[in-house]
């Protein structure tokens, strides 16, 4: 049995890129998964003027919170699919039995997932801001806060997805597990937008969101890996 030895560093980088590539391919070939969260995002934002009041002044007050809640729910909605198809077709088993660090693959999957949802939501946010009469000063704050906040949502959501991947009815359960954990991001995110609207400095809020992201980036992949191993072993 010959065994090739390749430098570990290079292997890990390749694996990260290969996983990102594969996930992108998968997303682009199943376009509905890609677009559905964005449509959901738009629809939730439409419900508020209809359900509360179309008054511009009132909506402008509501806008930071509404856009953030809608982004949060849209991310949550897309989380369940993150590991489910891999679980159902057996790819997850291959993944767990790979000698490569699971941490890297998991991180690559979440990063790609974020680019398909969080980043797209961030780019779409100005449109929602306009629909809800968010003052123009608030838009940069909205986008910056979403840019820093949505990766944390994806990372934390992936823990929930990994814990429920073995269950048939994971969808509702995952919201139950993950929503309370989303609260700090929501608070800091929507406060950042409010600060931007009133012309207060943003730095502090963005720093807090960045700190949460750093923490999630370090700890969440560990929790996700552990959760996947647990879920698959039943």
């Amino acid at each position: 049995m010959e065994m090739k030895t390749n430098s570990g560093q290079q292997g890990i980088g390749c694996l990260f890129v290969a996983t990102c590539r594969r996930e992108c391919l998968l997303s682009f070939r199943r376009k509905s998964d890609l677009v559905n969260p964005l449509i959901f995002f738009l629809m939730v934002a439409t419900l508020f003027p209809l359900g509360v009041s179309p008054d511009p002044g009132f909506l402008a007050q509501l806008a930071p919170g509404v856009v953030w809640v809608a982004a949060l729910l849209a991310t949550l909605l897309s989380m369940d699919a993150l590991f489910r198809s891999d679980y159902e077709d057996g790819s997850l088993e291959q993944l767990l039995l790979s000698p490569q660090p699971l941490f890297i693959v998991v991180l690559a999957k979440v990063v790609t997932h974020w680019m398909m949802t969080g980043l797209a939501l961030t780019l779409m946010a100005p449109l929602l801001g306009m629909m809800l009469f968010l003052p123009a000063e608030g838009v940069p704050g909205l986008m910056l806060s979403l840019l820093l906040g949505t990766p944390t949502l994806s990372l934390v959501g992936a823990i929930g997805a990994a814990l429920t991947v073995g269950l048939k009815k994971g969808g509702v359960l995952i919201s139950l597990l993950v929503l309370p954990l989303y609260i700090p991001v929501l608070i800091f995110g929507s406060s950042a937008v409010q600060a931007a609207v009133t012309g207060l400095p943003l730095g502090g809020y963005l720093a807090l969101l960045g700190a949460l992201l750093a923490l999630a980036l370090v700890l969440a992949p560990l929790a996700i890996s552990a959760a996947l191993r647990i879920s698959i072993s039943s």
């Binding site: 934390v156 814990l163 597990l177 954990l181 647990i230 879920s231």
Partner: peptide, 8 residues
């Protein structure tokens, strides 16, 4: 699984 969630 609950232990992981409780720790998170």
């Amino acid at each position: 699984a609950s232990a992981v969630l409780a720790l998170v």
